[in-house]
């Protein structure tokens, strides 16, 4: 999968948000709030040509002390969520 063009992650008074700022997303009228781990993942993959759910899992394992099974579940959930809200695609 890959992130869609035209989105920008920004910091708002200490919180992480994603806003549509590229012309590709001129009609996107949502704003997304990210928690710390989602922001860490987004930053790690947003410039990549493509990444997999496994890549997200490995990133989580590299940064957080979690069991591999939990990391895999979290990675899958966040990938599905990104696609559902339209900021990433297969």
């Amino acid at each position: 999968m890959k992130t869609k063009k035209g989105f920008k992650m920004r910091t708002l008074l200490g919180e992480h948000i994603i806003v549509a700022e590229g012309l590709e997303q001129v009609n996107f009228n949502k704003m997304i709030s990210l928690n710390e781990s989602a922001a860490y993942l987004w930053e790690a993959v947003e410039k990549k040509d493509s990444f997999s759910v496994d890549d997200l899992k490995d990133l989580l394992l590299a940064e957080y002390e979690v069991e591999e099974k939990i990391a895999a579940e979290d990675a899958k959930a966040i990938a599905e969520r990104w696609i559902e809200i339209g900021i990433a695609e297969e």
Binding site: L12, L13, E15, V19, G22, L23, N29, M31, S33
Partner: peptide, 18 residues
């Protein structure tokens, strides 16, 4: 909250965010 307030100010301002 800050997030909602940002969305309000963002959507009500002119300028070329793109």
């Amino acid at each position: 909250n800050n997030f909602e307030a940002y969305a309000l100010i963002y959507s009500s301002s002119s300028g070329f965010k793109f």
